[in-house]
Design a protein around this nucleic acid. Structure first.
Lengths: 103, 103
DNA sequence: CACGTTATATCGACATCCGATATATCGTGA
DNA sequence: TCACGATATATCGGATGTCGATATAACGTG
């Protein structure tokens, strides 16, 4: 139908990549951002990073031979997707508040 | 990891079932609620209704032999899930606004 | 030097969503 | 009246996303 809806994992990954960060750092950042609620499984994260890169929403930074870390960063296209997602989520919250109020 | 996150389809279905409604009515209601953005595919809807009923989040109302319509309604348990989901979505929006502001 | 953490990666299992397809009734305008 | 679009439910296969498990290895520290 539509292909706008991001999963929670992807949303938090993109939010984390407004500044360059590596995979494991994303897991920790998301954990912190969500106050421990969202703990990304390794399979989810590394799979998603590949998918997001092939979609052009994130870029892999040149690898640093002195480090094991592979850093990624949000692209302009990724930032657009992220902003649209925030609008979509806001709509969900508004509708939820409207229809649940008084309960 | 967690099993809290609802999909957009399920969220809107639950929101629609605070009052009794049948499947096709849900499709129309969600279309309207989302201003045409979310058009549930039939396979998504009828599959989800079965899943949600088996989870005890919605109940099927007694069938009316005079009508083709099968009505469903939210259970107390379903309402709890829906409220928790609204909190989760609010957290996503807050985090998104915080990290995207100034962009 | 052992052990927990950091770090990346792949795998199979499972759930969800989608579009397509099927079937049938209802309402309405030509 | 009859054709056609809307209403209404249902199932199917394919694609995708997430998970936990598993694997591998380097790093830091007591």
């Amino acid at each position: 139908m539509q292909q706008q809806a991001l999963t929670e994992a992807v949303y938090y990954i993109l939010l984390s990549l407004q500044h360059p960060l590596h995979g494991y750092g994303i897991i920790q950042n998301v954990d912190e951002l969500s106050k421990g609620r969202v703990k990304l499984a390794a399979g989810t994260l590394y799979g998603a990073l590949n998918t997001l890169e092939s979609k052009g929403w994130i870029d892999a930074l040149p690898e640093n031979p002195e480090s094991r870390k592979k850093e990624y960063v949000l692209t302009a296209s990724g930032k657009t997707v992220l902003k649209e997602e925030l609008l979509r989520l806001s709509e969900l919250v508004e509708n939820g508040k409207k229809l649940l109020e008084g309960n």
